[in-house]
Design a binder for these strands. Structure first.
Lengths: 118, 118
DNA sequence: TCATCACATCAGGATTCAATGATATAATCA
DNA sequence: TGATTATATCATTGAATCCTGATGTGATGA
């Protein structure tokens, strides 16, 4: 059995991971790994719709994964913390080993989310 | 725009993170961080129902996050890789800084999942 | 001021997912 | 063999969440 504090900790941790658990949000964070971008630039980089991106950015910002800064009419977004990048990097490492399993895991289908055209 | 390979990579990474993005699965992994456990022991440790745990374990195993070993009538589960633990640890670090934001982020409500009684 | 640009917000609909309860399987024991 | 134990699987149901299209807001420029 879990006591209340541990339960809260798990809930928070799950929320944090959920920020990473969507291809569209990952695409946005991937784009921001190199340099801050405004929303229009993120649209270009990812191919997602403006409102979709704006929604995801709201979530990511609320959860402290990205930070924003107003410059004139533009809002620039960047990853909020170096450890966000570390988490992404570590995930890539793990994935390189377990990729086959994850690929075959059809239990929970991830939405495709991002257009793959060019 | 993203090319197909990058898109697949994002989808896989999202799937991997989704394994961590649920309080019940986190509770299971937390229990397994110390030592391998059989399903009954996980039931005891987490307070989740047997079928619920079995479903989550199936997902976690398919995705390569936990490994299982049969011993008589019992199936013992353990974390599949040390880096799973590293990911959890890094998440805790990030969380200790951004916890306030995550807590306030009501955009995507995490299901409560695990009973908090004792 | 009025138009425009950049972005945020909202309602809706479709999809996905977690939990439950019932049932199936597989191993052990009497 | 038949009963029991440990675990897995399945259908269902309710809730969460992602996307879209429309609209709102706030800053800039004519």
């Amino acid at each position: 059995m879990l006591i209340a504090g541990e339960q809260l900790q798990l809930t928070l941790k799950a929320k944090l991971f959920r920020g990473f658990a969507d291809p569209s949000r990952l695409a946005i964070m991937e784009a921001l790994r190199n340099t801050p971008l405004n929303v229009g630039e993120i649209v270009e980089a990812t191919g997602l719709s403006q409102s979709n991106i704006s929604n995801h950015l709201g979530c990511l910002r609320d959860c402290g994964l990205v930070a924003s800064e107003q410059r004139g009419r533009f809002t620039y977004y960047r990853l909020a913390d170096d450890r966000i990048d570390s988490l992404l990097r570590l995930a890539e490492e793990v994935l390189s080993d377990v990729a086959k399993g994850v690929y075959q895991c059809t239990r929970y289908e991830t939405r495709e989310g991002v257009s793959d055209g060019e």
